[in-house]
Simulated scan of single mutants.
Amino acid sequence: MSGHALVTGAASGIGKEIARAFAARGYRLHLVDFDGGRLEQTAAELTGLPGSGVTVGTQVLDLREAGAAEEAVQAAWEAAPVDVLVNAAGIYPAVPLLELGAGLWDAVQAVNVRAPVLLTVALARRAVAAGTRPNVVNISSGAALRARPGAAPYTTSKAALEMATKAAALELGQHGIRVNAVAPGFVEVDSTVNPLREDYAATVAVNPLGRTGRPEDIARAVLWLAGPEAEWITGEVLRVDGGAAAGALNLPLHWDSPRTETEA
């Protein structure tokens, strides 16, 4: 498998691991992030992978800017037609609702929703004109289904992104362009942009499979959705969360003492 993958949020965390997964499959890469220093470190690591021979282009962009999506796709496409777009960039500041202002709200929606949509549109326009059929994978979150304190902008953005995924899949399917999403559960990553408190991490890292997610869990799912094995799948959200979305494992039994069916 080979091709050309454009990955946003690629300097660290899940985005970096996704880029690594595509590099291992022989993909040419165009990596986008606003952290230029860490982005260059990631590019150097991937270029130096044993036996990969991968070509890595980098672009430092702030996806809060309205023109950033067009810039990213234009630069990537000039290098080679893009076969896969992975919208992994995201921000999740914590702010109580009563302290929320328009600036923070708009910034989260710009990065988490507007940028993926406009990146998809910019790629689709070029692909339709060129007669190619790229795949798009958006990175959503379990937060799209469940609100939590301090995360109103983030949870709203991910719910919107999942609907945007379906809307894009509906309209672009006629051109052979597939659009899907992967929704990670709690995944611990080294992020200076999105730091997490230890007590928060301990609370949310509860799922039926009993372990915290790893970036490579998400990368494998993205690779599969973007590949030929998933060629008849579009408009779907694949939840990769250790079963967390199945229910609330950390609640007590709702009766004081368990009863059998015959006793009830």
Score class of each variant (00 low, 15 high):
residue 243 G to W: 02
residue 231 E to H: 11
residue 219 A to N: 09
residue 242 G to W: 02
residue 234 T to K: 01
residue 245 A to T: 05
residue 225 L to N: 11
residue 240 V to Q: 11
residue 225 L to P: 10
residue 219 A to D: 10
residue 223 L to K: 04
residue 222 V to Y: 10
residue 230 A to H: 06
residue 226 A to M: 04
residue 246 A to K: 02
residue 250 N to F: 08
residue 231 E to G: 05
residue 232 W to L: 06
residue 231 E to V: 00
residue 232 W to M: 04
residue 225 L to A: 11
residue 235 G to F: 03
residue 219 A to G: 12
residue 234 T to Q: 05
residue 228 P to C: 00
residue 237 V to E: 09
residue 215 P to C: 06
residue 228 P to A: 14
residue 221 A to K: 02
residue 217 D to Y: 07
residue 229 E to I: 00
residue 218 I to G: 14
residue 240 V to K: 08
residue 233 I to E: 13
residue 220 R to A: 15
residue 237 V to R: 04
residue 247 G to R: 01
residue 244 A to R: 11
residue 234 T to I: 01
residue 236 E to F: 00
residue 236 E to K: 01
residue 219 A to T: 04
residue 223 L to T: 11
residue 232 W to H: 13
residue 238 L to S: 13
residue 219 A to C: 06
residue 228 P to E: 15
residue 238 L to K: 09
residue 227 G to L: 02
residue 238 L to T: 08
residue 225 L to D: 12
residue 232 W to F: 15
residue 228 P to R: 07
residue 242 G to F: 02
residue 247 G to A: 06
residue 246 A to C: 07
residue 221 A to G: 13
residue 226 A to H: 08
residue 241 D to H: 07
residue 236 E to H: 09
residue 230 A to Q: 04
residue 235 G to V: 01
residue 246 A to Y: 04
residue 242 G to V: 07
residue 240 V to R: 08
residue 227 G to C: 04
residue 232 W to C: 03
residue 239 R to Y: 13
residue 250 N to T: 11
residue 222 V to L: 05
residue 244 A to T: 03
residue 241 D to S: 05
residue 239 R to H: 14
residue 251 L to M: 13
residue 250 N to E: 15
residue 251 L to E: 15
residue 218 I to C: 11
residue 248 A to W: 13
residue 234 T to F: 03
residue 239 R to N: 11
residue 242 G to K: 02
residue 251 L to N: 09
residue 231 E to N: 06
residue 228 P to F: 02
residue 246 A to M: 09
residue 221 A to V: 01
residue 218 I to Y: 10
residue 221 A to C: 06
residue 251 L to Q: 15
residue 215 P to T: 02
residue 242 G to L: 00
residue 249 L to R: 07
residue 221 A to L: 02
residue 235 G to I: 00
residue 236 E to M: 01
residue 242 G to H: 05
residue 224 W to F: 15
residue 237 V to G: 12
residue 237 V to H: 09
residue 234 T to W: 04
residue 237 V to C: 09
residue 248 A to M: 10
residue 237 V to F: 08
residue 218 I to V: 15
residue 221 A to S: 14
residue 228 P to I: 00
residue 236 E to D: 10
residue 232 W to R: 04
residue 219 A to I: 02
residue 225 L to C: 10
residue 246 A to Q: 11
residue 244 A to V: 01
